[in-house]
């Protein structure tokens, strides 16, 4: 249902309404946008429940919220308050350095990040209903999302051409269950939707990721860290919807001309400790 749409990070009801008005298919409630988590440091946890409730009351579109990797109690709380989706997210400080949440135990769907096919398939095996690239959240730099999307797509393409007898060894190398590997090899796609996240800052970024095979877009800091959130939100929705039409993407890009895109970071200058995408494998 969310396919082809844009899901926007919001920290309060006012931002959620701006996102809905711009045409977002869902909003992601979180305490601070990734760019601020990056800047301010400290432990990033599940969002304040009062804020989540206010956001749920303010909009009619689905509300997602982030739980820390492995923090199943946060996820239980989020399900109980009534959020529509949980994002088990590397953007928050991981609660478990080894294991992810057993998502099969929940009634609401989960989205999880991945950097490559193996990671994507492990999350699906745990019960994720949507995979998104991790990218490098809060960086305003699309390079990591491109790397992850290409890695996932290349991994899928490879499985579709190798002989069936190789799939057991492939499953071992990917660290993923054989049944899911076989399914991907047969269908040439993940059994769940694949979105892009991490570093989308402009309409052209969104169009790039959609053309690379994303089925929808998460925008984190890119909207509310720009100078004109409403303009950015609408322009990114337009470009995502019509990603293969350069005329419309150009017009979307024109809408934000002079409107101050978020300042980006060079990933190569981040230290290992500053990288969020390496959290959880």
């Amino acid at each position: 249902m969310l396919k082809g749409g844009v899901i926007m990070d919001v920290t309060d009801a006012k931002q959620a309404v701006i996102a809905q008005e711009a045409g977002a298919v869902a909003v992601m409630a979180l305490e601070r946008v990734p760019a601020d988590i990056r800047k301010e440091g400290g432990v990033a946890r599940m969002s304040d429940l009062k804020k989540i409730q206010e956001i749920m009351d303010a909009v009619t579109i689905p509300v997602m919220a982030k739980a820390r990797i492995g923090h199943f109690a946060e996820a239980q709380v989020l399900q109980t308050i009534g959020v529509d989706w949980v994002d088990e997210s590397e953007v928050l400080t991981p609660a478990d350095e080894k294991y992810h949440i057993d998502k099969e135990k929940f009634a609401i769907p989960f989205v999880c990040g991945a950097r490559d096919l193996g990671e994507a398939l492990r999350r699906i095996a745990e019960g994720a209903a949507m995979i998104r690239s991790k990218g490098e959240a809060g960086s305003g730099n699309i390079v990591e999302a491109v790397r992850h999307m290409r890695a996932i797509r290349d991994g899928i393409a490879e499985l579709t051409v190798v002989p069936r007898e190789e799939l057991v060894a492939r499953a071992r190398d990917l660290g993923a269950p054989l049944e899911i590997v076989r399914e991907v090899a047969e269908k040439g796609r993940l059994p769940v939707v694949l979105f892009c996240a991490g570093g989308v800052a402009t309409p052209a970024d969104a169009a790039l990721m959609m053309q690379l095979g994303a089925e929808g877009i998460f925008v984190g800091s890119g909207i509310f860290k720009s100078e004109h959130p409403a303009k950015f939100a609408k322009a990114i929705v337009d470009a995502t919807t019509h990603f293969s039409d350069p005329q419309i993407v150009m017009e979307a890009q024109m809408q934000i001309a002079g409107a101050g895109a978020m300042h980006g970071l060079d990933i190569r200058q981040l230290s290992q400790e500053q990288l969020m995408s390496v959290r959880g494998t």
């Binding site: 749920m56 009619t60 689905p62 399900q79 009534g82 959020v83 529509d84 989706w85 009634a107 609401i108 769907p109």
Partner: peptide, 9 residues
């Protein structure tokens, strides 16, 4: 009436 049967859960 939107979302009349309830949320995702």
């Amino acid at each position: 009436r939107r979302n009349s049967f309830g949320r995702q859960i």
